[in-house]
C-alpha cells in the first residue's frame, strides 16, 4: 500500500463524510447555509398558547412564512406574548391582519396561522416590532370536551 493510495482513500473518506453531513443538513434538517434571509419580528398576545413551541411555523394559507422565535409571559397581564420572526420577503401585512393558533390535523403539532386583513387608505402596514392585535387562542381539546359534557348535563 503506497502512501499515495492511502492518501487517496483517506481523501475519499473525508469527502464521503462531508457529503453525509451535507445530506443531513440540507435534506434531513432542511437548513440552508449562508443565505439566512432577512427577517423581521412581530408580536402577538394570546390568552392561551396551548402546545405552541419555539420554532413552530407561522403559515399564511398553509405556506410557511416564518417561525416562532420566542415565547414569554407578559409581566403585567400574565398572558403569553409570542414573538414571530417573519421572512422579509413577506413584508406587507396590514395591521388588520389576525393570527390564530391552529393545529395541523386532529392531534398534530400546533402552528400559527396568519390571516392577512383588508387594506384601505387608513390602514398601515405592519413593520418590525409591531404587535398584531387581533388574536385567537389555541383550542384546548380537554376544555372543549369539558364544556361539551357540562352542556349535556344541563
Amino acid at each position: 500500500m503506497t502512501a499515495r493510495k492511502i492518501e487517496i482513500l483517506v481523501g475519499a473518506f473525508i469527502v464521503l463524510a462531508c457529503a453525509a453531513f451535507l445530506m443531513l443538513a440540507l435534506k434531513v434538517a432542511n437548513t440552508g447555509f449562508g443565505g439566512s434571509s432577512q427577517t423581521y419580528t412581530l408580536y402577538a398576545q394570546f390568552d392561551n398558547i396551548g402546545g405552541l413551541k419555539v420554532r413552530s411555523p407561522v403559515k399564511v394559507g398553509g405556506v410557511t412564512v416564518g417561525r416562532v422565535s420566542n415565547i414569554e409571559l407578559d409581566r403585567v397581564s400574565y398572558s403569553p406574548v409570542v414573538s414571530l420572526e417573519i421572512n422579509a420577503d413577506y413584508s406587507n401585512f396590514p395591521e388588520t391582519s389576525s393570527v390564530a393558533i391552529l393545529t395541523s390535523g386532529l392531534l398534530g403539532e400546533q402552528y400559527i396561522g396568519l390571516l392577512p386583513g383588508f387594506v384601505d387608505d387608513t390602514v398601515l402596514m405592519l413593520g418590525n416590532g409591531d404587535t398584531i392585535e387581533d388574536t385567537r387562542s389555541a383550542i384546548v381539546l380537554e376544555e372543549l370536551i369539558g364544556q361539551f359534557l357540562f352542556n349535556r348535563g344541563n
Binding site: 434538517a29 420554532r55 403539532e109
Partner: peptide, 15 residues
C-alpha cells in the same frame, strides 16, 4: 417521509 423529517429535525438541536 422527507417533509415530516424536515419539519421535525433541527440542524443544531439534533444534527
Amino acid at each position: 417521509y422527507w417533509s415530516a423529517m424536515q419539519a421535525n429535525v433541527d440542524l443544531y438541536q439534533d444534527v
